[in-house]
């Protein structure tokens, strides 16, 4: 879905200038190139606003139609009903939903996402504290994914249909099809519990970060490897590869200097788009390994029906995904000269 959306957006917003080409001087074109990128970014941001409002509305409604009163969850079943009513009133839960919604949005726009029921602290602050852990985990996972995925993909493409290709692609298929929680549990059991190479949980030392990063990156490594391989194999059929060989490049030079850059365009874009699946993977990985990041925060919020915290994490994640898509699109623009100029 996000991939399609970005492709469509690219087509809608890449049209370029109103002037016919022969009327434009090169200066115009250059100025316009910078301008059109800026215009594109602005449009993408504008279009993200309704998406964001939709998400906020959806999560807001969902949290209110599920049964159970958050105040009872928070204070326990055996509390005096009068107290519950009083607390509800204090929290504004007795007001009509539309009023609650507007108030929530108005506060959110000022960076105030309310107070966590359970932790009794400002939600924004909690998220800001947890976020660095998730970033660290995701970046490490991305590094793992790129190193493993790229290497495996390139080698598989070179050794196409040979043993190494089959082996790597088998692993990659396993990588993309194995659910994150399963990889997590298996690796945790084998390497932390049995072999004791790494701590079972926690995220305070580099050693503790290894397993979570591999678990989270494994999935993406599989996608990167598969995509790199299939793109490379396809690109190696191109006429310009023949030209590269004809000018005297060795096969390794042809692949690294000419094929890889072309093959990487879609992979880079895919990776930025994969921020969303990274984040959902982070929810599970963080829970299994006890990493105090956004993912675990969300899971805790669900368990304790901590509505403000849950709303906050969901909205925050949505913003991240929107930014990810934007970055993906811009990256594509920077890397591909044909799109860079809005051809």
């Amino acid at each position: 879905m996000p991939q399609n959306e970005s492709v469509i957006l690219r087509h809608v917003f890449c049209k370029g200038s109103i002037l016919p080409e022969y009327l434009q001087t090169t200066k115009d074109k250059e100025k316009e190139r910078g301008f059109s990128v800026l215009k594109k970014v602005l449009k993408r941001i504008l279009i993200s606003i309704p998406v964001l409002i939709g998400v906020v509305l959806a999560i807001f409604i969902m949290l209110r139609i599920v049964p159970g009163n958050p105040v009872t969850t928070m204070m326990g079943e055996h509390v005096n009903p009068a107290v519950i009513e009083k607390v509800s009133k204090e929290m504004g839960l007795d007001q009509p939903y539309y009023f609650q919604f507007i108030k929530y949005v108005a506060n959110a726009l000022r960076g105030d996402f309310g107070t966590s029921y359970r932790l009794n602290r400002n939600v924004t602050q909690i998220i800001v504290e947890a976020f660095p852990h998730t970033v660290k985990l995701s970046v490490l996972a991305a590094v793992v994914a790129w190193i493993i995925g790229l290497t495996a993909g390139v080698i598989a493409a070179i050794r196409q249909n040979k043993l190494l290709d089959r082996l790597f692609m088998g692993c990659a298929l396993m990588g993309v099809s194995m659910p994150v929680f399963m990889t997590a549990l298996v690796l945790q059991y084998v390497f932390a519990f049995k072999l004791k190479w790494f701590p079972v949980s926690g995220f305070d030392s580099l050693n503790a970060m290894v397993l979570p990063a591999i678990v989270l990156g494994w999935n993406s490594a599989g996608s990167i490897a598969r995509m790199t391989r299939s793109n490379l194999v396809e690109i190696m059929q191109n006429d310009f590869i023949r030209t590269a060989r004809a000018k005297g490049l060795r096969e390794s030079g042809v692949i690294i200097g000419h094929a890889l850059k072309n093959a990487m365009l879609p992979v880079v874009t895919m990776m930025a788009l994969q921020i969303s699946s990274m984040l959902s993977g982070a929810v599970l990985t963080e829970s299994v390994f006890g990493v105090p990041g956004i993912g675990r925060l969300a899971v805790n919020a669900i368990e304790t029906r901590d509505m403000p915290l849950l709303q906050g994490t969901v909205i925050f994640t949505t913003v991240l995904i929107i930014i990810g898509n934007l970055v993906a699109d811009l990256l594509y623009n920077v890397l591909d000269p044909r799109i860079r100029e809005g051809e």
């Binding site: 191109n238 006429d239 310009f240 023949r242 030209t243 590269a244 004809a246 000018k247 000419h258 850059k261 072309n262 365009l265 890397l335 591909d336 000269p337 044909r338």
Partner: peptide, 15 residues
């Protein structure tokens, strides 16, 4: 050295 029939596709589009 050699030049090819297809000038449109014989050059690498991203270099």
């Amino acid at each position: 050295s050699m030049i090819f029939q297809e000038p449109m596709t014989s050059l690498n589009p991203v270099i």
